[in-house]
Design a protein around this nucleic acid. Structure first.
Lengths: 211, 211
DNA sequence: CCTGCGCTCTCCCTTAAGGTAGAGAGCCCG
DNA sequence: CGGGCTCTCTACCTTAAGGGAGAGCGCAGG
């Protein structure tokens, strides 16, 4: 088996939805120049399959069990700095996108992209050409200049989003309530929000927090 | 064409992600007893295609542009009260699920369900047998007994989730701030939350609000 | 070395939010 | 028609949240 093949693009898929994997596999295997060589249902499997197959392109869902997209991108690029990774996700507000791209993912796509765009993105990435969907490019520009949160602030934001009070947050982070307030105030300023609830809404929209 | 077919199950798909449609179509058309006769990318298209094809089963994504799943279920059952609708969604906390099911959808599925479960759900629904995934059944039981919000409270909750203050909410709904507070307090009680921010978190988890 | 940044903490003050209680008007259903 | 529910509004009180200003400490980078 596997007799004639020249510039076959070998692809590994990683997505936790069987339906999506099937859809991608179907549209990829229909192409004469592409082939799916592995399908992963979670982050760890994705890494294992990458090592096993060393594909030309890895198509990666951002949100997955066990290990999320960002972590997989990191690990795979450790294994092979020249790896070609195409990140996919459902949401266009995901902050993680930028983390992936700045870490070295070669492309990014929304799941609701039409077939043709998905295929041409895979081809682009396989040739080491970066592919960035226009919606993401636009988001990236919007994000420019906007202040970024520190790790501590993200910790606090997470708790704020869960509905915790300043006192509660202070207890959980082993700091004083005053300090918790300080962080919250910084968050409000950076996110340009008037109240903590608005801050949560903004953070959600920007994909700074999930759930 | 279409020569021999006895109990072919004719299916219309509705999902805004081409990838998902492809995946479902691939796995359905592979079955000897099933056939995809139409694919819709939004709610309106879904209704049109239902009328056009009168399929045995309609597989419907809950979240779609133009008209969401709930509205489509409503409309299709108006057209044909015996319609067999299988609702799919990504999130298991979606309050809308229960609305769909109580309105007469025959089955419900999570998108991360394995292939076999999806296919057997379609078969079940086509024979007018209800199909409820175990996770949803569990959620339904959990939801039992828990107080439900009134329409007005949902309106207020929506605004609270956007980070609006009571005063702001009052202005937008043309009521006094006191009344807005009354509603918020009712929401807090019903959702068993201490603060508005926690209420938003709970509402999110339960799928009472989106985004 | 020292500058900048992130994290921590403090004090004061104003306003918004949450808790309790009560009440009237409209509406649907038994 | 009366009871229950929803929506509306009121008053009072307590606590949490937000705004402003400042300051010390540690650590990495120029």
């Amino acid at each position: 088996m596997a007799a004639v093949m020249k510039s076959h693009i070998r692809v590994v898929l990683a997505d936790d939805h069987p339906v999506v994997r099937d859809g991608l596999a179907a549209m990829i295997n229909q192409q004469p120049d592409m082939e799916v060589v592995g399908e992963a249902g979670d982050g760890e499997e994705a890494i294992t399959l990458y090592e096993q197959h060393r594909p030309d392109v890895m198509v990666l869902d951002l949100r997955m069990p066990k290990r999320d997209g960002v972590a997989v991108v990191q690990r795979v690029l450790e294994l092979n700095p020249k790896a070609c990774i195409l990140v996919m996700t459902t949401y266009d507000g995901d902050e993680d996108i930028f983390q992936c791209l700045s870490q070295g993912a070669k492309g990014y796509l929304l799941k609701d992209a039409p077939r043709q765009e998905i295929l041409s993105a895979i081809r682009a990435v396989s040739e080491d050409r970066p592919y960035t969907s226009s919606t993401v490019a636009a988001k990236a520009l919007q994000r420019m200049g906007k202040p970024s949160l520190t790790q501590r602030e993200l910790d606090v934001l997470q708790l704020v989003a869960q509905g915790r009070s300043n006192k509660d947050i202070a207890r959980r982070l082993s700091i004083t309530e005053g300090t918790a307030k300080t962080h919250v105030k910084a968050i409000l300023t950076k996110l340009d929000a008037i109240s903590r609830t608005e801050a949560v809404a903004v953070a959600h929209k920007r994909g700074l927090i999930h759930l």
